[in-house]
């Protein structure tokens, strides 16, 4: 884990990339998510230091939320503030679901609020999203597997399944939303 550039520097490198990603640039979007994953891992790792096994799960959950909620980012907001607000929300939600309050080692301190540090080491998630995918309704699962895991374009997936392109997109979005709900429900059950 290294502490490098401050939040201002992160924002100045992230903002143009994020704008391109929001406009539909897939490469820029992938780069943004990778960059943010390393920051989130460090951010969440500091707050879950007594439960290191849960960090990667929460990183993935936050990335899924960022993706599903990317329509709520307003260009007038700083990207990092928006990301931190979502990560914080997911962390508080995680504590509530697991019946824990932020303890001595897990505090939502206001001082160290930014995505300052980078942690590139994926220690592996304990939950397997691929297994959860199998629980999704057929149409949603097929749309996600074809377009996301098999790497077909939306147009190719549409012609293969006979559904329209917009129907495929809707099924992918609904499936990912469902996946996020399943991830949240896991703790409760």
């Amino acid at each position: 884990m290294t502490t490098d550039a401050g939040p201002g520097d992160l924002e100045s490198s992230l903002k143009p990339l994020w704008s391109r990603a929001q406009a539909g640039d897939e490469v820029a979007y992938r780069t943004c998510l990778s960059l943010l994953a390393a920051r989130l891992r460090a951010y969440l790792g500091r707050r879950l230091s007594s439960h290191p096994d849960e960090v990667e799960d929460l990183v993935q959950e936050t990335l899924l939320a960022l993706h599903l909620q990317r329509g709520t980012h307003d260009p007038s907001l700083t990207v990092s503030a928006w990301v931190v607000a979502i990560a914080r929300h997911k962390l508080v939600d995680h504590w509530r679901r697991t019946g824990r309050r932020g303890g001595r080692h897990e505090s939502l301190d206001d001082v160290d609020e930014g995505l300052l540090a980078v942690d590139d080491e994926d220690r592996g998630a304990s939950r397997d999203l691929e297994k959860l995918l199998r629980v999704l309704p057929d149409a949603q699962r097929r749309a996600i597997v074809l377009t996301k895991l098999d790497g077909l374009s939306v147009a190719e997936a549409a012609s293969r399944t006979g559904a329209s392109e917009s129907a495929i997109k809707v099924q992918v979005h609904r499936g990912l939303r469902r996946l996020a709900a399943l991830v949240r429900g896991e703790h409760a059950s």
């Binding site: 929001q22 539909g24 993706h67 374009s153 990912l176």
Partner: peptide, 15 residues
């Protein structure tokens, strides 16, 4: 996680 990122970004289109 990098596989999840791949999954989310692939053909994601505009926000």
């Amino acid at each position: 996680t990098d596989r999840l990122i791949e999954l989310l970004a692939h053909d994601a289109g505009p926000a």
